[in-house]
Design a protein around this nucleic acid. Structure first.
Length: 401
DNA sequence: TCTGGGGTCCTAGGACCC
DNA sequence: TCTGGGGTCCTAGGACCC
C-alpha cells in the first residue's frame, strides 16, 4: 500500500479524436484525409484536420474555409458507443480499478499489479497495443502518481503517445507548462491569469493560495493551488453513477410558434424519460434550459416530492415551466430548449431509504412498509426524507402493527 | 468565429429545521 | 418569549470538460 504513494501507477487513457478515428477506421477512403464528424457544427476533427486549424466546436462553413478538402461525415453514435464498450472491456481486463470519465477516456489504477502484470509502463504499452489490435483505434496513455498529473501527461503525449511522469520529475514536468493545460482552467480563468501576467503552472505555484482564492474564488483558487503543487489525493473511483440525464435541441434563429416549442419539449421529455427507464433510474429535479437569440442562457428547476421516470409526470412539470416563461421567450427569442432530470436514484427499492422519513428501523417491519408504499406510490417510487415531503403534505401510510 | 449535445462541479442566497 | 448558530434543501447562474 505504501508504494502507491511513491510510484507512478495511475493511468489516464484517452482515445485520440475519437469519433473521427472511428470513421477513418470504418471507411478506408477517409484515412490520411482531413475528416470532421458533424453537421452544421464540428463534433470531432481528425488530426489531419486539426493540423489545418479545424477544431470542435467550429461551425462547418468556417471549418471548410480553413480546410478546402475537408471531408465532413455525419455522426454514427451507435458505432461510437460500441467502440467505447470494446475499449472499456480492455480497460476492465487490465485492472478492476477503472473510473470512466466520458465515452472515450478513463483512469486506471494499476498499483497492485506489479507482480502479476509488471511495471505501469509495461501495462500501458500492452494496453495501447491491445486497443490498436482488438478495436483498431489509437489511444494515448499518461502515467503518473496522481489522477490529475496522469491526465496532463496524456494531453501532452497526444496523439498516439505514452508518457510516464516519474515521481522525482513531477514539478520539473509540470511547471513549464502553460496554465491552460491545468484541468479546470478554461478560457475565463486563463484570461484572468494572463491579465495578471501569469502564464505558466510554475508561476501559479509561486502564488499564495490566499492570492489565488482572492483572484478566482474559493473553489477555483484552492483547486488551482493544489494542482500547481501536484497535490491530488483523489483515488480512482469505481462504480460512479451519473447524477443527471438530459437532452436538448438547438432551434436556429427566427420566430417559432409557441405550440411548436411545446411539441419540441414533449419530444425531448419522451426521449429523456425513455433513457431513464432503460437505465433504471428515477429523478426528482426537473430542469428546463433555455438559450435566447443573444446567446444568454437560463435554467428553471422544479423539485418533486417523489422521484419518477414517468413521461407524463415529467411532461406536466416541463410544460408548466415552459408556459411560465412564455413572455420572456416571446421577447428574447429562443434558440435552444433542453431538459435534464437530476437528483437521480435507483428504482430498486431500498427499505432502509424508505424508512428514513418514518424513523422506523425495526427490520421486522421492512416488508410491510415496502408493500404499503408500493401500493400507494407504485413500484418505482422511492421515499426519502426531505423537507419537500412534509411541505407537499405527504402522510406516512398506515402500517400494520 | 458565432457557436452541438452530453455532462460535472461550485457559489450564493433564501427558506426552513433543530 | 426572544435570540442565535449550524445544517439541509432548493433555485439560479457560471465555468468547465469531452
Amino acid at each position: 500500500m505504501s508504494r502507491t504513494a511513491a510510484t507512478a501507477s495511475i493511468l489516464h487513457a484517452d482515445l485520440d479524436s475519437f469519433y473521427a478515428s472511428v470513421e477513418q477506421r470504418d471507411d478506408p477512403r477517409l484515412r490520411g484525409r482531413p475528416v470532421a464528424v458533424g453537421g452544421g457544427v464540428v463534433l470531432a476533427a481528425s488530426y489531419e484536420a486539426k493540423r489545418r486549424g479545424v477544431s470542435a466546436p467550429m461551425p462547418e462553413h468556417l471549418a471548410r474555409r480553413c480546410c478546402r478538402d475537408l471531408v465532413v461525415v455525419p455522426p454514427r453514435f451507435d458505432a461510437y458507443t460500441e467502440a467505447s464498450r470494446q475499449v472499456f472491456d480492455v480497460f476492465h481486463d487490465t485492472t478492476p480499478l477503472v473510473e470512466g470519465l466520458s465515452i472515450d477516456e478513463a483512469f486506471l489504477d494499476v498499483s497492485g499489479l506489479l507482480r502479476i502484470a509488471g511495471e505501469p509502463v509495461e501495462i500501458a504499452q500492452r494496453l495501447r497495443a491491445r486497443v490498436a489490435s482488438q478495436v483498431g483505434l489509437a489511444i494515448t496513455v499518461g502515467v503518473a502518481r496522481t489522477k490529475f498529473l496522469a491526465k496532463v501527461a496524456s494531453g501532452v503525449a497526444k496523439p498516439d503517445g505514452l508518457l510516464v511522469v516519474e515521481p522525482d520529475r513531477e514539478l520539473e514536468f509540470l511547471h513549464p507548462l502553460p496554465v491552460g493545460r491545468l484541468w479546470g482552467v478554461g478560457p475565463v480563468t486563463e484570461r484572468r491569469l494572463h491579465e495578471r501576467g501569469i502564464h505558466t503552472v510554475g508561476e501559479v505555484a509561486a502564488l499564495a493560495e490566499s492570492h489565488l482564492t482572492a483572484m478566482l474564488g474559493r473553489g477555483s483558487g484552492r483547486h488551482l493551488h493544489a494542482l500547481a503543487h501536484n497535490l491530488d489525493p483523489r483515488p480512482v473511483e469505481v462504480g460512479k453513477r451519473r447524477g443527471s440525464i438530459g437532452s436538448q435541441s438547438a432551434l436556429g434563429r427566427g420566430p417559432k410558434a409557441f405550440d411548436t416549442l411545446e411539441a419540441l419539449l414533449l419530444g425531448i421529455v419522451d426521449r429523456v424519460a425513455r433513457r431513464m427507464r432503460r437505465a433504471d433510474r428515477v429523478g426528482r429535479t426537473v430542469t428546463v434550459r433555455f438559450r435566447y437569440d443573444d446567446f444568454s442562457r437560463a435554467a428553471r428547476a422544479r423539485t418533486l416530492a417523489f422521484p419518477t421516470a414517468s413521461t407524463t409526470a415529467l411532461a406536466d412539470v416541463a410544460v408548466s415551466v415552459l408556459r411560465a416563461e412564455r413572455g420572456t421567450i416571446e421577447v428574447r427569442g429562443l434558440t435552444l430548449i433542453g431538459l435534464s432530470v437530476g437528483n437521480l436514484s435507483s428504482t430498486v427499492l431500498e427499505p432502509e431509504q424508505m424508512l428514513l422519513p418514518f424513523g422506523r428501523k425495526d427490520p421486522s417491519r421492512l416488508d410491510d412498509t415496502v408493500d404499503a408504499l408500493k401500493d400507494r406510490f407504485g413500484a418505482g417510487a422511492i421515499v426519502r426524507g426531505s423537507l419537500l415531503h412534509r411541505r407537499a403534505g405527504f402522510e406516512v401510510p398506515k402500517l400494520p402493527d
